[in-house]
């Protein structure tokens, strides 16, 4: 199974669509893997279960992660991902509605690369998603 460049973990279909549109607008729509729950996300990242056939050696270039997810929460995914030698170098951008300081502090403690509070206004939202995603994508490619 082929590994996509961007792994986008989000359960809200509206947000997915808005994000995809924003990315497409900035020409980074290619190669995005969308996963809608936490458990599946972990299987994908560690190439287990449904994604056992994925080449574990090949990591996504960037992960866009929502915090509020079914089954396994975003913070839990972040924690496990950053704890693993093999996956801890993948840049993770947390995309969330939560302005809670607690979430922000915890995310940074686990080693998040960027933390973005989703703006309500569409223009702002679209701007934030694409620039941050792009930024990390480019940074990682150049490595």
């Amino acid at each position: 199974m082929e590994t996509k460049e961007i792994l986008y973990i989000e359960d809200n279909p509206s947000d997915i669509e808005l994000t995809l549109r924003a990315l497409k607008k900035h020409n980074v729509a290619n190669s995005i893997q969308i996963i809608k729950d936490g458990e599946e996300a972990l299987e994908y990242i560690f190439a287990t279960g449904r994604y056992a056939d994925r080449d574990i050696e090949e990591n996504p270039k960037v992960i866009l992660l929502d915090l509020k997810l079914p089954k396994v929460g975003g913070l839990e995914i972040l924690k496990r991902l950053k704890a693993e030698e093999h996956t801890k170098t993948i840049p993770v951008v947390v995309l969330t509605s939560s302005r809670e300081e607690k979430d922000m502090i915890e995310s940074y403690n686990y080693g998040v690369n960027s933390y973005v509070v989703k703006p309500i206004k569409f223009e702002n939202f679209s701007e934030a998603v694409s620039t941050l995603g792009l930024y990390w994508l480019l940074i990682n490619e150049s490595l």
């Binding site: 809200n12 509206s14 947000d15 669509e17 808005l18 509020k68 969330t96 509605s97 939560s98 302005r99 809670e100 989703k118 309500i120 206004k121 569409f122 223009e123 939202f125």
Partner: peptide, 19 residues
């Protein structure tokens, strides 16, 4: 927490799709 997540997401959708 729920308010910030659950209420803002639909608003974002409303605004986003209106746009």
């Amino acid at each position: 927490y729920s308010v910030s997540h659950d209420l803002k997401a639909p608003l974002r959708a409303v605004i986003g799709f209106s746009q």
